[in-house]
Design a protein around this nucleic acid. Structure first.
Lengths: 207, 207
DNA sequence: ACGAAATTGGAGTATCAACTCCAAAATCTG
DNA sequence: CAGATTTTGGAGTTGATACTCCAATTTCGT
């Protein structure tokens, strides 16, 4: 993305990656403002000059962290959701998210959601970058729902676009409540409720 | 709550309130860490010694801000939801929230949600305080749904507790997406979808 | 191997933010 | 009104943090 990226030794690339990964982890846990450059240096095992060699300043590093988290999040999605086109696959998707959250002991919440809440009103550039990431995520969900609809597993009059927004909101809100309660249950319940809703739209008449 | 609160002149009370309100506004917009004591001093029109006269330090001020936002949020809820016991009242509730968000031009998101995302992993005391506030909010929603159920407007086998969690998640997630997109639509869509879900649970067979 | 370019180490600086101190002014109590 | 208490003003201190600089070292292309 930057000019500097062109002439980058494999060793340099590795160092850069180490910095981004360390910064991402710390920023997820403590927030962007509370994560100091020194914390990142220590966690990544690099000196100040190395960090400033790869990034002009904290803003640029934040931008790289957003890209990194967006890629990670969408990869997880596509790993589970390449065929997000059945009710069952939605259930597995929920299991994966709950599993990751549980591994993290409910710390950090959503890697993208945390950054969004943190930066939306203080860094306009970051906000735009995050909005784009959420848009891609939303499309991924919508495409799966559209496929379901075309196959007749979802009611004709359902709006996949709106349902994707609601599903993404359920994920984000569920993660927030799980984070503040230190309990994976809210995420599970929120997503399950949305899956139930899709289920109901699939078979309107419950026996 | 603190000892100091006992001997407080009306003028002193007013100054204290001014500080909390100013801090709450700034912290909602820029986050806790990015809001400096000096910013708050300027916004409230007070000197450093005044601020430290009423609060031992920033942590105590943050705690007061959480209380303030929790009270505000629950008051809004009870203003609209004292009778949150019909589908129509849920629709009005949604309108109020979308209205407030639009007035704010989608800045800040949820006064409680922002604080939760910001503080959950860096301030254990604040996390507990916020979890309690969310629990009260959740109960408020659940109680309304329970009333609906008792009156037969909601299916017997529906779980008001789980639905309340899902509804609160929809609100939080919707607010986050609206904040990052600078567009009230995601909040509206997320809450509407949950209302639709309740509707479906009310009348399982759609004509 | 050899020059050029990339990478690394570590000391140093300038700024900013949280917090302190003390005395003056306003307010309450009897 | 008088004394005690609360409230206010503003200069000053301490510590932390983002960022700089320059020389030493390693890596790469040929």
């Amino acid at each position: 993305m930057t000019e500097i990226a062109r002439r980058l030794t494999s060793k340099g690339q590795a160092t850069r990656d180490r910095i981004v990964v360390a910064a991402a982890r710390l920023m997820l846990e403590y927030g962007v403002a509370r994560t100091t450059i020194e914390d990142i240096q220590v966690a990544a095992g690099v000196s100040p000059s190395q960090l400033y060699h790869y990034f002009p300043g904290k803003d640029a590093l934040v931008s790289a962290v957003i890209d990194h988290q967006a890629t990670q999040a969408l990869d997880v999605q596509q790993g589970c959701l390449e065929r997000l086109d059945t009710i069952d696959s939605l259930g597995r998707w929920r299991d994966v998210m709950v599993g990751i959250l549980t591994e993290m002991q409910c710390v950090g919440g959503c890697p993208l959601g945390s950054l969004a809440s943190d930066l939306s009103d203080s860094d306009p550039v970051a906000r735009t970058q995050l909005a784009a990431a959420f848009a891609r995520w939303q499309e991924l969900i919508r495409d799966g729902l559209s496929e379901m609809q075309e196959r007749g597993e979802l009611a004709r009059d359902a709006d996949p676009g709106n349902l994707a927004v609601a599903m993404l909101a359920a994920v984000q809100g569920g993660l927030l409540l799980s984070q503040v309660n230190r309990d994976p249950a809210p995420l599970r319940i929120a997503v399950d409720t949305m899956i139930d809703h899709l289920h109901a739209l699939t078979r309107p008449a419950v026996p």
